[in-house]
């Protein structure tokens, strides 16, 4: 079947099998940042934004994204670098395999929540698993990043 959607702002038309998952579709179209970590919607590695909202691309048929806008980390490289440097500053990147899905969800969280508490952050990101870091350095990165963004808004700088 023919599907049409936007991936990172680019219009894509492709013929696919009806059972193709969005995860495999975006990987086929150059978005290798999107990873598969499980087959049971448990790990969050395949997180992409669909119409601005984070979803698990492993649990959605590509055909259901017909006509919609899909964003992957490839489409928000500048933000990824900005937040990612805070992860690197903590050594939180580690093996990196979960980073893209995690960062997508962090950036979604920042758009959705204002001044989130540690508990709210943990709750929002619960679905993003990481086996290397024990999560603590990821939290430190987020707190530092939020402080930085706040400073940026206040004009007080980093």
């Amino acid at each position: 079947m023919l599907v049409k959607m936007w991936i990172n702002g680019e219009a894509i038309r492709d013929h696919i099998d009806p059972d193709m998952l969005l995860l495999d579709f975006v990987r086929r179209h150059g978005c290798a940042s999107v990873k598969r970590g499980c087959e049971t919607s448990n790990c969050g590695l395949c997180t992409v934004m669909l119409e601005g909202k984070p979803i698990l691309s492993c649990s959605m048929l590509a055909a259901r994204a017909e006509g919609m806008h899909v964003m992957t980390l490839e489409g928000i490289q500048e933000e990824a670098r900005e937040f990612g440097s805070f992860m690197a500053g903590q050594g939180a990147d580690q093996c990196g395999f979960c980073n893209p899905g995690f960062i997508m969800n962090v950036l979604a969280m920042i758009r959705e929540l204002t001044d989130p508490t540690e508990e709210e952050i943990k709750e929002y990101l619960e679905g993003n698993l990481c086996r290397c870091s024990g999560f603590v350095s990821q939290l430190r990165s987020i707190m530092e990043y939020l402080k930085y963004k706040k400073g940026e808004q206040d004009g007080s700088g980093k």
């Binding site: 290798a32 670098r81 937040f83 440097s85 990147d93 960062i103």
Partner: peptide, 21 residues
């Protein structure tokens, strides 16, 4: 010293650097 991992920016920007990529 707490130096950044040399591959950090490739990893956090999701570059295709793993086996299946």
């Amino acid at each position: 010293q707490p130096i950044y991992k040399k591959d950090a920016m490739a990893l956090v920007t999701g570059q295709p650097v793993y086996t299946d990529d």
